[in-house]
Simulated assay, not measured.
Amino acid sequence: MNAKIWLDIPNCCTPSDGLCTGGRPRPQDLRDAQAKGVRTVVNLCPPSEDPGYDEPALVRELGMRYVNIPIAGPADLTPENARKLAAVLTAADGAILVHCASGNRVGALFALKAHYVDGMPPAQAIAEGRAHGLKALEPAVRQILGA
């Protein structure tokens, strides 16, 4: 895909080429992401979590694709949402930024994707989640995965 993309966002992770995960980007971070080759922005925050600016409009204005998969908490950590994330990653043309407010929900959803979509056993899926930002939601993810 692309090289590693690091952005000045909270808890930034670069788990693989062309993928950046972390917390909520500011408008300038989105401009930087576009300049570094990001073509898709996936926001896991529900619309009720207002970032203080119109993120979807700015992403589109910058010529990038905007996707929202709302993850308000553990109840939204489902195989269905993991499959939605996998579909977006598969269809993406270019680098991707996946974010929530802190990066924790991002890591949780990547752990579920690793298990439900990629077939990883729970312990390996949790390690994958950690590489993508999983922290405080790890106990909930462990419970979901039966680990």
Rank of each mutant, 00 (worst) to 15 (best):
S48F: 12
C45R: 15
R31C: 02
P25Y: 11
A35T: 07
P51F: 11
S48W: 10
R39Q: 14
K36A: 13
R26S: 13
A33W: 01
A35D: 11
A35C: 03
G52F: 10
V67N: 07
T40M: 06
L30E: 04
Q28M: 13
D54A: 15
G63W: 01
M64L: 12
D32M: 12
G52W: 05
P51W: 08
E55I: 00
E55R: 01
P46E: 02
R24I: 08
C45V: 04
M64K: 06
P27A: 07
V42P: 10
D32E: 15
I69N: 06
R65P: 01
N68D: 01
R24P: 00
V38K: 00
L62C: 09
G63K: 01
P51N: 10
Y53N: 06
N68L: 03
D32R: 13
R26I: 02
S48D: 14
N68G: 00
Q34S: 14
R24K: 13
P27L: 13
R24L: 15
Y66K: 07
V42Y: 09
A57W: 08
Q34P: 05
L30C: 03
M64Q: 08
A33K: 00
C45Y: 01
D32Q: 14
R60F: 04
L58H: 04
Q28L: 14
P27T: 09
N43W: 00
D29L: 03
E55V: 04
I69R: 04
A57I: 03
C45L: 14
L62R: 11
R65N: 11
R65A: 14
R26K: 14
Y66I: 05
M64T: 10
E55G: 02
A35S: 14
Y66N: 08
L30F: 04
G37P: 10
D50Q: 14
L30M: 09
Q34A: 15
V59P: 05
V38F: 00
E61D: 15
E49W: 14
R39I: 02
R39T: 13
L30W: 06
R60S: 14
K36Y: 00
R65I: 09
C45G: 05
I69F: 04
P51H: 03
K36P: 01
V59H: 04
Y53A: 07
S48P: 02
K36G: 00
L58I: 08
Q28A: 15
D32N: 15
P51M: 09
Y53I: 02
R39G: 10
L44P: 10
P46N: 03
N43L: 00
D50E: 15
P51D: 08
C45E: 12
P46G: 13
E61S: 11
I69T: 05
P47K: 04
C45F: 00
M64E: 11
N43A: 07
K36V: 00
E55N: 05
R39W: 02
S48K: 13
A57P: 05
R65H: 13
N68T: 02
D29F: 01
D29I: 07
P27F: 08
V59A: 05
A57R: 15
R60L: 12
P46Y: 03
D54M: 12
D32L: 11
I69S: 08
I69E: 03
K36I: 01
V67T: 08
D54R: 14
V42D: 09
T40Y: 06
D54P: 12
C45N: 14
G37W: 10
V59Y: 08
R24M: 15
